[in-house]
Design a binder for these strands. Structure first.
Length: 477
RNA sequence: GGCGCGGUAGCCAAGUGGUAAGGCAGAGGUCUGCAAAACCUUUAUUCAGCGGUUCGAAUCCGCUCCGCGCCUCCA
């Protein structure tokens, strides 16, 4: 089965292949750095990360560009409020964004493109649009004339053919010829940040940065363009209008959009008090791996209902997988390789791959992993799992983790934005081993009270003991 | 009003014509000095409701109810 994605443009599931060679040229819409980005934003960025990782698993090289919008109305307003320059203000939240992204183990795109570092590219794009007659100016601002691009609406599947200039009663309220037109370049006013250009002093409109940067890094036609569903219209529609007006060629071949996240079945909003940033959740003590798992486990085109019950369930699920990993690596096993296990391993990998290939159906892919884990636990219980089967199980976990990346625990000291927690007093391995030895002796002499006391004492320090056939196994909680 | 997405067990969720995956939670059990972990059994005769098509529908069609998103800068 080949890799397939749902394409917003065609509204169909399509087989994916890059346009040229083995490299996937991908553009994703990144953050606007006017504040800490919230957990809903990270749902989309996590989807993009899973997409990246699966493309790489499938043997493709990536050339991925993500923009950072570091000049816009909200940034200008917020920076002014804090009496900071645009640069100083956005630097804070850009840094925070990448710290958060790292905590969620999001891979860095090959190129991170801040808008303010690409003004010449935008100027060039606007000049090309002007030369081809797609623009007009009004009071120092430059606008895109939608009426000159008949295909407008093809991505969002809206029919704008009936809309004409003057239809809207309040057209005079806008300084545009048509209410649907959008601004390419905003005229300079007050003391706002601005750049000098042949078409006037000012700053870029939102949409032009993506067209200009995408094409300057990746060429005229991208393989994949991705973002949240709310960007379909108008942002991505406008990107198409700009880019295709310039090149006359399709801007992106596959448009992938992730659905929104809801909190406890409600829209996340500040007024409802259910607005969370990653740092809020970390502050509450939730593990970044659990958050990542929860965000990744619901297929990206489905609304994700974020609940704290779900977040706790995610943490338990990860623990189950980590326990399995520990069991496979630490249990004493008979020599050899059980062929049935080897075959079951291949089957699990096939199932996992089939799920991911099917438009990144992570729920189905995960089911393959859990069915495998249960089957292998049973095999171990029954004594049929052999020494060399360790590699089989490790292979499955490795494939799982190269996409989901949640098995390794994060050092709590390295969480962004979290004050140093009063953690359990540290205890060294040697001391733990000494306690375990004492407890083993206590058990031998049937001093169970002392044995339980040691277990409790270690638990307080975050050490969990498990008695197995081959002796005591311990792990840090 | 237009366009689009969705309603599957206590919660999350797969399944888009052939008789309900998986995770978490709950109950009972095996193992254990006790635990933990693991495993087993169990928890939807039923997929928002009603009607239709079909040998057969959660899956297709129609209607109704409910939730959500976009329709000028929100992932």
């Amino acid at each position: 089965m080949s890799l397939r994605f749902y394409n917003t443009l065609t509204q169909e599931l399509e087989v994916f292949t890059p346009l040229a060679g083995n490299t996937v040229r991908m553009y994703t819409c990144g953050p606007t750095v006017y504040n800490f980005v919230h957990i809903g934003n990270f749902r989309t960025f996590t989807f993009q990360d899973i997409l990246r990782r699966w493309l790489r698993y499938r043997g493709y090289k990536l050339d991925h560009v993500m923009n950072v919008t570091d000049v816009d109305d909200k940034i200008i307003i917020n920076a002014a409020k804090e009496n900071k320059s645009i640069e100083d203000y956005t630097a804070i939240y850009t840094k925070a964004f990448f710290e958060d992204a790292a905590a969620l183990r999001l891979q860095q795109p090959e190129h991170v493109a801040p808008a303010t570092k690409h003004i010449p590219e935008m100027v060039k794009a606007i000049e090309e649009l002007a030369a081809k007659g797609f623009t007009y100016t009004n009071e120092g601002s430059t606008y895109y004339r939608i009426a000159s691009f008949p295909a407008y609406g093809k991505l969002s599947h809206n029919d704008f053919s009936g809309m004409r200039s003057g239809v809207r009663v309040d057209v005079d309220e806008y300084d545009k010829a048509d209410a649907r037109d959008f601004v390419l370049w905003k005229a300079h006013r007050n003391n706002e940040i601005s750049w000098d250009t042949p078409f006037g002093k000012g700053r870029p409109g939102w949409h032009i940065e993506c067209s200009a940067m995408a094409m300057s890094y990746l060429g005229e036609t991208l393989d994949i363009h991705a973002g949240g569903v709310d960007l379909i219209f108008p942002h991505h529609e406008n990107e198409i209008a700009q880019s295709e007006a310039i090149t006359g060629k399709p801007f992106a071949r596959h448009w992938l959009h992730s659905e929104h996240l809801q909190i406890e079945s409600q829209k996340m909003s500040k007024s409802l008090g259910n607005f969370y940033t990653l740092r809020d959740l970390l502050e509450m003590g939730y593990q970044p791996e659990a958050i990542r798992y929860l965000l990744a486990s619901v297929p990206y085109r489905k609304k994700l209902n974020f609940t704290f019950e779900g977040l706790k369930a995610a943490a338990k699920t990860i623990e189950r997988l980590r326990d399995f990993e520990l069991r496979v690596s630490s249990t004493k096993l008979p020599a050899g390789r059980n062929q049935a296990v080897a075959e079951r391993t291949a089957e699990a990998i096939r199932q996992f791959e089939a799920g991911m290939d099917d438009d990144l159906n992570t729920a189905e892919a995960l089911a393959a992993i859990f069915e495998y884990v249960r089957a292998m636990n049973t095999t171990i219980d029954e004594g049929y799992f052999q020494e060399e089967n360790r590699w089989d199980a490790a292979r499955v976990l490795e494939i799982f983790d190269c996409v989901f990346d949640v098995l390794e625990a994060t050092d709590p000291a390295k969480l962004p934005g979290v004050q140093a927690q009063p953690t359990a007093p540290a205890i060294g391995d040697a001391e733990i081993e000494a306690y375990i030895e004492e407890r083993t002796q206590a058990k031998k002499s049937r001093s169970f009270a002392r044995a339980d006391e040691i277990r409790a004492l270690l638990l307080e320090k975050g050490i969990v003991l498990e008695d197995t056939k081959e002796g005591v196994r311990w792990k840090r909680k």
